[in-house]
Design a protein around this nucleic acid. Structure first.
Lengths: 140, 140
DNA sequence: CTGGCTGCAAATCTTTTGCATCCTG
DNA sequence: CAGGATGCAAAAGATTTGCAGCCAG
């Protein structure tokens, strides 16, 4: 834990055991977990953890730019600890989300921007993963 | 109304007054309204309209591919009657959504797809719109 | 020791569901 | 006139809030 503490010291937020547990779960996590998934995992080793704390912590982490909030799953937020530029490939059947680590530099013509200052882009690729395609052979 | 009825006949769904009112509101609408916005607008001329009906109708329209559900606003679905390929430019301050009518053909290398069948992509550009940038001159 | 954080419960918001009634086709 | 659609209320799911007590700095 000492290492985590050192790593997150620069955030200038109190490093409570709950926060460290959530940070440890998110560290390197590529599953794009929802609040429910974070709660389910972390509360195993931390039974007193409450949903409100998970919400508080992830909102704090989003504010401090330690994790990104992603709006891929309709009606539910997911979180991604990978802050470097990347995109997502989503299976329209099982909603599994994979990372695509390619940097596409997409241009928008000045006149289409209508005064907008463009800061970046998120690309959501969608398709059908191999597992779902194989379960599908009966109806294409 | 006769014209709308003719136009939507091919959907083979019952064209109730509620459905026609919602379809009329969505027709050509570029504001990417949420259910609440649809309800607020349509219930003015249709006071008996209930939220459940708006949900029923938009879900039916999504199933029949008359409108697209978009997950840009975290925790809330928005709907877009423009079914042709296009992308969105979102203001991170006021959440206004503009359409970008450009077709980007983005390639993913075979080995990154891991067996995925790629069907398409949605690009969310983000930035700051001119209105919000001007309100901002005091801080940056 | 103090302000920020946790945990609990209640409140709020979004969406879905059950069911009696209605009305389009 | 039958089956699907509406309207209402209740339920379910996601998130926020208020507040007393706790604990990291």
């Amino acid at each position: 834990m000492r290492q985590d503490i050192k790593k997150y010291k620069k955030l200038n937020i109190k490093l409570t055991p709950q926060r460290l547990a959530i940070l440890a779960y998110l560290e390197g996590n590529r599953t794009h977990p929802s609040v429910e998934e974070i709660y389910r995992h972390v509360s195993k080793r931390f039974p007193s953890m409450s949903y409100a704390t998970v919400y508080n912590v992830v909102n704090t982490l989003v504010k401090h730019k330690v994790v990104k909030e992603i709006s891929i799953d309709p009606g539910k937020k997911r979180f991604d600890p990978d802050m470097h530029t990347h995109h997502h490939l989503v299976c329209i059947r099982c909603r599994k989300i994979m990372d695509i680590d390619i940097d596409y530099s997409l241009h928008i013509p000045e006149q289409a921007l209508e005064g907008f200052t463009l800061l970046g882009n998120n690309i959501e690729f969608y398709g059908i993963c191999s597992v779902c395609r194989n379960n599908d052979t009966h109806q294409i």
